[in-house]
């Protein structure tokens, strides 16, 4: 029971982190049609910026400053890079962000080196928050969940209750009309792109010290985030939310199960060489692959994703 609860909490906190990443990606995609391949790179930049800022002025300013900085960088990239390739179509845009991801990784190598930097959890949050049976649950994980949920609330509020949210939602579907009404749609695009990057960076700030801040961290989550938005349904924030949590929880629990195919084969009386060759893998070893398998299953049985509407 203790194990179950701890795993559930772990799963949810990981899932919420995934959602912070995928929400920005989903927003950018549904608004501009741009699939930002470099999205996870902004997550990485967020972690590195936070590391740099926190060594100078501490973690709390970094929590605010790093996402803002990355947001500015993102906006600049949209303004001076992405907008220029926009005229060639969506595939070149994707290629541009692909090249960008590549370049950002190299820049990180250039400035911070190839090994992990020592970006630590702040002392103030380095304690056990509450008792789960006979073990303490780390406060930082609770903090991660709190930040994610706060961000989720803020995002929802911005999109549904503010004027800019209104324009963004209108520009989602009727960009030309919004333009005709006198709004600067390109600037809205820039804002959304920068905002999405800032969200990813925020995830980086709180994920970078919980896990590790290293140049490979972008590639590690990049493809998972894509899986999340395919499974959730492209352009659907709610879908991304469900998919993030589902993947977080599934992956966490799969780790716990030592069940292997060999057991099943033995049940049905197949113990040959071939059975041993493919059957000795435990489900827990399979955990990192599960999101991809989930994606393939979704594509076969529900190609538009859990809550997706558009059929492209």
């Amino acid at each position: 029971m203790e194990f179950f609860l701890v795993s559930l909490l772990n799963g949810v906190s990981y899932g919420l982190l995934l959602f912070m990443l995928s929400s920005g990606l989903t927003l950018i995609f549904s608004m501009m049609g741009v699939l930002n391949f470099a999205h996870a790179s902004f997550y990485m930049l967020g972690a590195y910026f936070a590391y740099q800022i926190s060594t100078a002025v501490g973690f709390w300013p970094a929590l605010v400053l790093a996402p803002l900085l990355v947001g500015v960088v993102g906006g600049a990239i949209e303004r001076y890079g992405l907008r220029r390739v926009h005229r060639y179509g969506h595939v070149p845009e994707l290629l541009f962000t692909f090249g960008l991801a590549y370049l950002i990784e190299e820049v990180v190598h250039l400035i911070w080196g190839r090994i992990a930097v020592d970006y630590r959890i702040p002392e103030a949050l380095d304690f056990g928050a509450f008792q789960v049976f006979d073990s303490l649950y780390p406060a930082y994980r609770v903090f991660m969940m709190a930040v994610s949920i706060a961000m989720l609330g803020a995002l929802y509020w911005t999109l549904t209750r503010t004027r800019i949210g209104l324009i963004i939602r209108a520009a989602l579907t009727h960009a030309d009309m919004v333009q005709a009404l006198g709004h600067n749609v390109p600037r809205v695009f820039m804002l959304v792109f920068g905002g999405g990057c800032a969200l990813a960076a925020l995830a980086g700030v709180i994920g970078g010290n919980a896990f590790v801040t290293e140049p490979a961290m972008a590639a590690a989550v990049g493809s998972i985030v894509f899986v999340v938005i395919v499974v959730g349904g492209l352009g659907s924030l709610a879908g991304a939310f469900i998919a993030s949590l589902a993947i977080g929880v599934i992956q966490t629990f799969a780790v716990a199960l030592d069940w292997s195919l060999l057991d099943t084969f033995r049940e049905v009386g197949w113990t040959g060489e071939a059975a041993r060759a493919i059957g000795t893998i435990k489900l827990s070893q399979f955990a990192p692959v599960l999101p991809y398998i989930l994606m393939v299953l979704i594509l076969i049985f529900r190609p538009r994703g859990l809550l997706g509407r558009r059929d492209t």
């Binding site: 699939l35 969506h90 994707l94 894509f226 938005i229 395919v230 893998i281 991809y292 994606m295 393939v296």
Partner: peptide, 27 residues
Amino acid sequence: RRAGTIFAMISLGVGEMVASVAPMFPA
């Protein structure tokens, strides 16, 4: 089943899947 950027994403996922499943089958 899909084209365009969505195909790109799916191809990435499928590629990752095959690449990370492969080391699990040393035989």
